[in-house]
């Protein structure tokens, strides 16, 4: 049984169909890189998986349990959607850190809101807070930012902000972590540190979907490549297959273009 099964996801905005039947499976610990030209629907796919958009068709199944079916689109309560989306984490192109909180608080805010709910004893609360804070500090260590715990986002470089955003997403312990072009908003000299952080997560066995324009990264880090064009998966396979021997004419054309 696959960790994630996506079946036949469709999504339209008004008259334009942006996703035209996307389906793939994903195993635990697998890293998938999604590539494709701008406008092909990569962001929309991640937004659907994270329930920021509701797909018009298709199903999403995690660990054998169907958590979304477009037929029941109207029936899901806010609380159900919230619970289900916790299977996933999303790192945005534009970081979206909370500017008024320091780095540590950015990471601990959501876990605290969730895990302190219904806890009334002060001692118990304190214990949970301490635990969350320790987890956050060790996540900061993972992304190499231990010494920045007390800094505010505005005091950090883009690459540092993005690494904090990664730690923040990890703090909710998602099964699958999604990245939407995590380095596209960064100066070229800062992309390396973020890509290295993602790569180190792979060695820890994290399951990840990374939308990226960094072809070297996709080739070297991903277990599988999904090439999207016009709202469908045009080609998928190992980096070896897709980069060295693309079957589709479109893939070949895309890969032969100079990097965007």
């Amino acid at each position: 049984m696959s960790l994630l099964e996506i079946k036949n996801i469709t999504k339209s905005f008004g008259d334009t169909q942006v996703l035209r039947g996307i389906g793939f499976n994903m195993e635990k610990g697998e890293v998938i890189a999604v590539i494709g030209s701008s406008g092909s629907g990569k962001t929309t796919l991640l937004r659907c998986i994270n329930f920021l958009e509701q797909p018009d068709g298709g199903t999403i199944t995690v660990n054998g349990r169907e958590i979304y079916s477009a037929e029941k689109k109207k029936l899901y309560s806010d609380a159900e959607i919230r619970t289900n989306r916790l299977n996933f984490g999303l790192v945005f192109q534009s970081f979206n850190l909370f500017p008024q909180y320091n780095v540590l608080k950015n990471i601990t805010l959501a876990p605290e809101l969730m895990r302190l709910k219904g806890v009334s004893s002060g001692a118990e609360k304190k214990k949970i807070r301490r635990q969350i804070s320790n987890e956050a500090l060790s996540l900061l260590q993972t992304v190499g930012l231990s010494e920045k715990a007390q800094s505010y986002p505005c005091e950090l470089s883009g690459g540092q902000q993005q690494r904090v955003a990664i730690a923040r997403a990890l703090a909710m312990n998602p099964e699958i972590l999604c990245f939407d072009e995590p380095t596209s908003a960064l100066d070229p000299e800062l992309t390396g540190e973020v890509l290295r952080a993602i790569k180190s997560l792979k060695t820890q066995g994290r399951t990840m979907i990374v939308v990226t324009h960094e072809m070297d990264f996709a080739r070297n880090v991903a277990d599988r490549i999904i090439y999207m064009a016009d709202g469908v998966i045009e080609e998928t396979g190992t980096p070896e297959q897709v980069f060295s021997a693309p079957r589709s004419e479109k893939t070949r054309a895309f890969l032969s273009k100079p990097a965007l």
Partner: peptide, 18 residues
């Protein structure tokens, strides 16, 4: 306030009032 702030909260499982 940019939409990304709301969405960041949403994907972290926060409720609308939170």
């Amino acid at each position: 306030i940019p939409r990304g702030q709301y969405e960041a909260g949403q994907v972290l499982g926060m409720t609308k009032p939170q």
